[in-house]
Design a protein around this nucleic acid. Structure first.
Lengths: 215, 215
DNA sequence: GTCTATACAGAGATAGAC
DNA sequence: GTCTATCTCTGTATAGAC
């Protein structure tokens, strides 16, 4: 009997987990699409296809739900980082990460961070799981930034955490939606320009005096 | 009697206009501080010191009120542009405008445009006064951008309207609040870095001819 | 035009049956 | 754990006296 009960129990757990995943995924999408204030719990429940009351069995409230969604997003970043090829130079890693976050944004997916003035900022400050994950990826990225600075690819005049913020901020850059709403450019073009203007802005200044051994 | 009635009438008009200005100013501040969704009409009325119902005598609704606030902001930009010294080179004008918008943002004032996903975007699309003013300053700034490109100060590879968006987007850049919340840097430093990374990103690429085997 | 008081709608959250 | 039905609060908007 145990041989039957065990899988049964595991199955229920899996269902439970899968449903929570579905809820978080829907919340994540709506959060990215409409923002924290405009998103409603009813919409999330409807998107998943469950009743709102059922959702509240999984999450204590809207804040909790959205915090879980943000954790979910950061964990995706963690996986992306972990999936990077081993030998890649730091600058290429940064470039790939930037491209990926902008692509997320252009495909209406969840941005890594919130647009400014989000009411979610407060609750998120007290979510330890989020803070821990964010801290983890920040440390990782800061390491790459240091390497890129030593390699002369990023201006050493900029503090590493400023570079970090500048990169992450591109994932919620109003520039992307502005250009998109204009309707005259393709997503690929927008992506290129966004990356180009961002990276050029962080790059070490050009060798103005034809610096001898530079670059 | 006319000599008395005329001033009396004008006085009332002035009062009316002044009150509307006060309402718009308060709305503008709260809109910049909390965003469209989080801001409430009650707060605006309380800030001005009038009853909510009185406010509704001046503006048809929240959308109207916020649209008026946005028009107010764009008109400030118009005045700033008009106040620029005559002989200033185009690039200096762009730099001054960028600095000004970032300073607005750092002093918790109203950004020129909304953070992405604002519910105000829809109503604003149908506000002719806003669109007209925005169009006017856009044309002006686009002129400067063209000059700066011809002068080799901004990359000619970037379409002028992309440059325009990139500049305006800095007024709602999450980078600013991120660095600010970090608490380790002064507003002056943040301003410098924000301008530097933005302008470097738009600048024409370094004279590669000077470096024969460059990159 | 300004006020007080109120209607109305939407959304977060909960009760209780199954 | 999931559902339907409901509570409650907040926020937009309005009615009606002055």
């Amino acid at each position: 009997m145990n041989s039957l009960q065990q899988p049964r129990h595991s199955f229920k757990q899996q269902m439970h987990h899968a449903r929570e995943e579905a809820i978080v995924a829907a919340a994540s999408r709506l959060l990215g699409e409409k923002g924290f204030e405009a998103m409603t719990v009813d919409e999330v429940a409807a998107a998943v296809g469950i009743a709102k009351a059922s959702l509240y069995k999984h999450f204590a409230g809207k804040d909790d739900l959205c915090a879980a969604a943000m954790v979910h997003v950061v964990e995706r970043v963690q996986r992306f980082i972990a999936a990077q090829p081993a030998g890649l130079p730091a600058m290429e890693r940064l470039r790939a990460l930037l491209r990926w976050t902008i692509e997320m944004q252009l495909s209406d997916d969840m941005p890594i961070l919130l647009s400014r003035n989000s009411g979610l900022a407060g609750p998120l400050k007290e979510c330890e799981a989020y803070q821990a994950s964010l801290q983890q990826i920040s440390a990782q990225i800061l390491g790459w930034i240091g390497e890129a600075q030593q390699a002369g690819q990023i201006s050493p005049a900029l503090p590493p955490d400023v570079v970090l913020c500048a990169l992450l901020a591109r994932s919620a850059d109003p520039l992307l939606t502005m250009l998109r709403d204009r309707g005259t450019y393709s997503d690929a073009q927008i992506l290129d320009w966004a990356m180009e203007t961002c990276l050029n802005g962080l790059a070490a200044r050009a060798p103005q005096a034809a610096a001898p051994g530079a670059a």
